[in-house]
Design a protein around this nucleic acid. Sequence first.
DNA 1: CGGTGAATTGAGCGAGATCAATGTATGTGG
DNA 2: CCACATACATTGATCTCGCTCAATTCACCG
Lengths: 196, 196
Amino acid sequence: MVQTHQHFDSGQVIFNEGAGSSYVAVIQSGAIKRMRGDRIVGLSLPGDYIGLSCLYSGHQVDTAIALERSRVCRLDSKTALRQNPHSAKLLAKEMEQQRWHLALQNQPAMQRVASWLVQLSKHHQARGLSATHIRLPLNRTDMANYLGLALETGSRLISDLNRRGIVQIQARQLEILDLAALAQLEVEGQSEQVSQ
Amino acid sequence: MVQTHQHFDSGQVIFNEGAGSSYVAVIQSGAIKRMRGDRIVGLSLPGDYIGLSCLYSGHQVDTAIALERSRVCRLDSKTALRQNPHSAKLLAKEMEQQRWHLALQNQPAMQRVASWLVQLSKHHQARGLSATHIRLPLNRTDMANYLGLALETGSRLISDLNRRGIVQIQARQLEILDLAALAQLEVEGQSEQVSQ
DNA sequence: CGGTGAATTGAGCGAGATCAATGTATGTGG
DNA sequence: CCACATACATTGATCTCGCTCAATTCACCG
């Protein structure tokens, strides 16, 4: 299977929603957001595949945009990939992500933030990186968009976690200090309890 | 390919989330809700397929429950189905539904209701049934669950549409009087404007 | 009839959105 | 080196939509 490497600068479009041409790729570095209309529906990090939808629907169902300078490895032979038994696994993983994202949408704001941070931590760990020191791939506007919140709400909750000593955050640089507390918030989700 | 017909009574579980055994079927009559945890994540009507997830992930990702007495046609040969080029189309349709459902979750309540009714209407029409006279497959509790609303909110909005003469509804029996207005609400979504 | 479950309707509250101001970090040119 | 511009982030104040709690009302059945 032919493989070609490509670079994309921050903000560059990799492919557009509805594009007929097949474009499947693995991300090697950087970060990519997947948009549907003006909504961010997915976040793809190194190791993730993008463009899988063209394997079953013949076109892209979202627009992929680089969030920072990114390197991807494009897989040119669509048929070879489709016949690969591994592709079912990739599809399953993508759908699992979609369901997770859907499930987020009707949870309280704090749970969404906590869930996302926990998931980011797991993704880092799975790739052999630090589970606690993470550079957020999204700015506040995109983060809020992704989580379905107002950007101010997202910012406030991040600040709140900071104040409580659960994370240490400065702009995009995150350090998780108390992963257990974060995991707790993921299911209990109480926001800033003003203890009297 | 072996095909067997089966009946399920209202409330009966067709298969469970996580079930390893392959169960793919076409719905011939009735209506089926697909649940993930206590959340309704999909609604399947005659002509729709259920259980497709086992084709790519090897197990069911949701629980299917009959909403009324339903007849399904089970497709026994997983491999035959997977090799069928048609299966990619089915998958694409299912994912399209999922994306639609996700997009709903961060729209105002009225838009969700309007979108759902329009979609129901289209589904009926596509099957050669009346686009205006529809028996809702869900009760208020399930409808609200599906749309991510409190049941009272759903009920109020339905009543509101009634009052405005856009639909005529009595419990589960719906008649769409002004589809254009409904389609308008789907994008503009203004609720009960108290004109002073 | 009364009984049971579903649907409607009302009143009040609160999480989160919106509007608006301020703070902070990177520039860029004089 | 400092004024200025730009983009991003934080914080505060207020408002609103939709949730919760609660009371009827309705429909169907024994």
